[in-house]
Design a protein around this nucleic acid. Structure first.
Length: 565
RNA sequence: UGGGGAGUAGCCAAGUGGUAAGGCAGCAGGUUUUGAUCCUGCGUAUCGAGGGUUCGAAUCCUUCCUCCCCAACCA
């Protein structure tokens, strides 16, 4: 369950709600809704909306509905309904009611007949192209459709015959009779119904006409007695239309006042990624990523597989805030959110990504020192056993034959600490015919076992390591940002958003060496591999063939020193 | 040239006439058996620009500039 709202300044939607509570507009009631169209997978932008809507419900002792906006049968599918439920649940939210816009098809239709009878809607025979033409544009007012003044009786007859299937798809539409001269294009007699002989994932073939978003959405909100209907900025100029439909139907006493209010906020954008469903789909279709749940994807399922926690996503949503300004949030904030959560909870383990063999020359063959080490700097997380043996692996990049300035790690003649074990000093570097370092010969200080050297000498570096005899081999999948550009959609002349795809967004390391205790890790388990980052067991993992995803690396201030030269 | 929105530090974001919160990033230092975490300190923010009102303006008025959305039988 999400944590109690911390003290922070209110966002503008909370201001609105609190003002409504003061005036008792809805009798103090707060009911929001999360209304996805089940035509694709949810991404982190949806997560922001989910956290906003459900967060408001929780904060104001209200509730939130999950409503599938399924008014366009050709694009929707149950597959998506299931994944959406799963994602919302995984984020930690419970909806008080689950509805589908299609639940309201009959009411929507009945109200449409009412609007026709009131002379507020009419059946239009213009073709799609003609409608576009008659609508005019930003600089030219629209022209009335020649069918605009049909009598209510004629319209009702036509609407019923549309429903009965007497006309071909696209032959006629039902339109709201508003204002063809409006500066707001949405008010130039918007479409309410189209004829579509398509199989609907829930209503099957019961309907041949389907309502459009602008008509269906507001009515659905009102039927559910939603108090605050939150959507994104691009719907701002739909608001008058939202109000118009609700007002007409309220006059017809189809639902009670006060009517729900539409409020718009800025959708989430993230640096180094794309967020539109269409672009995401292209990434999948064109094979730039494996699937919707590829750990590089900003989808909720992708982030889940990558190792993100629900709490980290909720905290992230809380931190980016809610406002009306178009913005692009720094993906670094997302990385901060997951590190913040995992730092507290992930058990520490040792894993060597790119192994370099080290022989402890003064340790006996077959000798095994068993060590008990803490699972976490917070010792309440308990301990585990580690084995120290003559042959170990350390990280290849923890050794430099000619170390740069301020190098704390291993180098010829240098002494470092093996985390949780002992001090070792590098005495010899073994190379192959190509001159590559293949092995290090080091001397260990038995007196330092499990602690410091008795003579009080200090070392600056502490390395992670694993016993060669005990280590298990695993595949490591290291992820980097999918794009090299902060805003891939900010395309240069003649360029394509795909141009900035990062060719190194996935690096697979097949021969990583892990401490023995990790052999029993299960899919989804998360760990911090000391000095490296947070990792989780991928669903591709098998006993004996472990696969880990790197969720996020640890902050690395040494790397920054390197960058600066 | 129509309608609707938005401009506060590198990125988010408070602020609603009384003298610019907070977070992330960055920088410096301290602690540390993770170069992590943690702790401390660090930003003269032309509050998009100009003009005006006011004792006092990010907040009010005015002119202008920039950016975003809208012309699907998509949502």
């Amino acid at each position: 369950m999400p944590e109690a709202p911390e003290s922070r300044s209110l966002n503008f939607i909370e201001d609105i709600i609190e003002a409504d509570r003061v005036t008792e507009k809805h009798g103090g009631r707060v009911l929001t809704r999360f209304p996805p169209e089940p035509n694709g997978y949810l991404h982190i932008g949806h997560a922001k909306s989910i956290c906003l809507n459900f967060g408001l419900g929780l904060r104001y002792d209200g509730a939130t509905n999950l409503r599938f906006d399924d008014t366009n049968p050709v694009k929707e599918d149950v597959e998506y309904v299931d994944s959406i439920r799963e994602d919302v649940e995984w984020l930690g939210f419970k909806w008080v009611n689950e509805f589908f816009a299609s639940d309201y098809f009959q009411q929507l239709y009945d109200y449409a007949e009412y609007l026709v009878q009131q002379g507020k809607a009419y059946v239009c025979d213009l073709s799609e192209a003609e409608i576009r033409d008659y609508r005019g544009n930003f600089h030219t007012p629209g022209k009335d459709s020649p069918y605009r003044n049909r009598t209510p009786g004629e319209n009702l007859d036509l609407l019923r015959r549309m429903r009965a299937g007497e006309f071909a798809d696209g032959a006629r539409v039902l339109r709201a009779r508003i204002d063809m001269q409006s500066g707001n294009m949405n008010l130039r007699d918007p479409l309410m119904y189209r004829i579509r002989r398509a199989h609907h994932h829930r209503t099957g073939d019961a309907w041949l006409i389907y309502p459009l978003y602008d008509y269906a959405h507001g009515v659905s909100d009102a039927l559910e007695a939603i108090t605050h209907s939150i959507c994104t900025l691009e719907f701002e100029d739909h608001r008058p239309l939202y109000g118009w439909f609700l007002e007409q139907d309220a006059e017809g006493k189809f639902f009670r006042r006060p009517l729900p209010r539409q409020i718009e906020f800025a959708r989430l954008n993230l640096t180094y990624t794309v967020m539109s469903k269409r672009r995401l789909l292209e990434l999948v279709k064109e094979g730039h990523v494996q699937h919707w749940d590829d750990p590089r994807m900003p989808t909720i399922c992708g982030l889940r597989r990558r190792g993100f926690t629900p709490a980290s996503l909720r905290n992230f949503a809380e931190r980016v805030g809610v406002a009306k300004r178009d913005s692009i949030s720094d993906v670094g904030l997302l990385e901060f959110a997951i590190r913040e959560d995992l730092e507290k909870s992930a058990l520490r383990r040792m894993a060597v990504l790119r192994p370099l063999k080290v022989i402890l020359t003064n340790m006996g063959e077959g000798e095994v020192f068993e060590l008990e080490v803490a699972n976490h700097p917070d010792t309440s997380h308990g301990t585990r056993k580690l084995q120290l043996t003559r042959e170990i692996f350390i990280e290849r990049e923890d050794f430099e034959e000619i170390p740069p300035k301020k190098w704390f790690r291993l180098a010829p003649g240098a002494e470092v600490r093996l985390k949780g074990a002992c001090l070792i000093r590098c005495e010899e570097v073994i190379k192959d015919a190509m001159g590559q370092v293949v092995e290090l010969r080091c001397a260990w200080d038995p007196a330092s076992l499990g602690g410091d050297a008795p003579d009080g000498r200090k070392v600056k570096g502490t390395l992670h390591w694993v016993s060669a005899a005990h280590a298990v081999t695993a595949e490591m999948r290291l992820y980097d940002r999918l794009f090299t550009a902060e805003n891939p959609m900010d395309i240069a002349e003649g360029g394509d958003w795909r141009d900035t795809l990062n060719p190194h967004s996935l690096e697979v390391l097949p021969g990583a060496k892990l401490e023995a205790s990790l052999a029993a890790a299960n899919t989804g388990d998360r760990f911090q591999f000391e000095r490296l980052g947070y990792f989780c067991v991928d669903r591709d993992s098998q006993p004996g063939a472990l696969v880990f995803n790197r969720t996020v690396a640890l902050k690395d201030s040494w790397a920054k020193v390197g960058e600066k030269g």
